[in-house]
């Protein structure tokens, strides 16, 4: 039945944004932060991830497929929206718009990021080390795009988390939605600082 299908797909899209895509973002930022402890610590953390058994399968099934689904269906969701931010200057309307704007920025960033730092590696056979990332981030253009992409992804996750709670009927009333707004704002700030801090470790 097409009706159930539409409902299911849209809900799966919301679910996939947090599990596993959001969780993966948190793990990724966590692993990145090992750079703060120096080159050796970062290389050990990356080495640990690279030695996970069946890594390629996990990457495809738990990360690649859900991200591709979330992104492609999300593009459709973005397409069927008509922007009205200059007609309705309401806070949530702007957040709604930014959610879609950051979606597109994040998608472009992730495709590029995965291509240069993951897929190209398969062809060239180069190891992923602190120095690889350092050389890459030495380009000011890449660095700027990386920070924009990082903040877009973190915003999309934080606001998406707020939206997820409404979409699944968990935060129903205005008080609970206000509280989760504060919590998600703090999450956005903390993840943003943590992410940029890790980047800083590579360029200092």
């Amino acid at each position: 039945m097409s009706q159930t299908y539409h409902y299911l797909v849209r809900r799966l899209h919301s679910f996939a944004g947090i599990f596993p895509v959001g969780i993966f973002l948190l793990m990724h930022l966590f692993i990145n932060s090992f750079a703060l402890r120096g080159e050796a610590a970062y290389n050990r953390a990356v080495g640990f991830v690279n030695n996970i058994p069946g890594l390629v399968y996990l990457e495809i099934l738990l990360i690649g497929v859900p991200i591709a689904f979330h992104a492609l269906y999300g593009l459709w969701v973005t397409y069927v929206t008509k922007t009205s931010i200059f007609q309705y200057y309401y806070f949530r309307n702007w957040m709604f718009y930014l959610q879609r704007l950051t979606a597109v920025i994040t998608l472009i960033f992730v495709v590029w990021h995965v291509w240069v730092l993951r897929i190209v590696r398969v062809f060239t056979g180069t190891e992923m080390t602190f120095l690889t990332v350092q050389a890459w981030l030495a380009n000011p253009l890449y660095l700027t795009f990386y920070i924009i992409g990082l903040l877009a992804a973190v915003y999309h996750f934080s606001n998406g988390l707020w939206s997820f709670l409404v979409t699944w009927g968990i935060t129903i009333g205005p008080e609970s939605q206000r509280l989760t707004l504060y919590v998600c704002t703090v999450i956005f700030i903390l993840l943003g600082i943590a992410g940029i801090n890790s980047v800083y470790a590579f360029i200092r």
Binding site: H6, Y7, R10, R11, V77, V80, T81, S84, Y88, Y90, R92, N93, F96, Y97, S163, V166, T167, W168, G169, T171, I172, G173, P174, Q177
Partner: peptide, 27 residues
């Protein structure tokens, strides 16, 4: 499911119906 949580509906409702909470509860 086509609701995207922009919440403009509640802001413009002349009858001040709590549409946001109603949609969340129906979710």
């Amino acid at each position: 499911v086509d609701c995207g949580n922009a919440q403009n509906c509640e802001r413009v409702c002349p009858k001040l119906i709590p549409l946001v909470s109603i949609i969340a509860e129906m979710n």
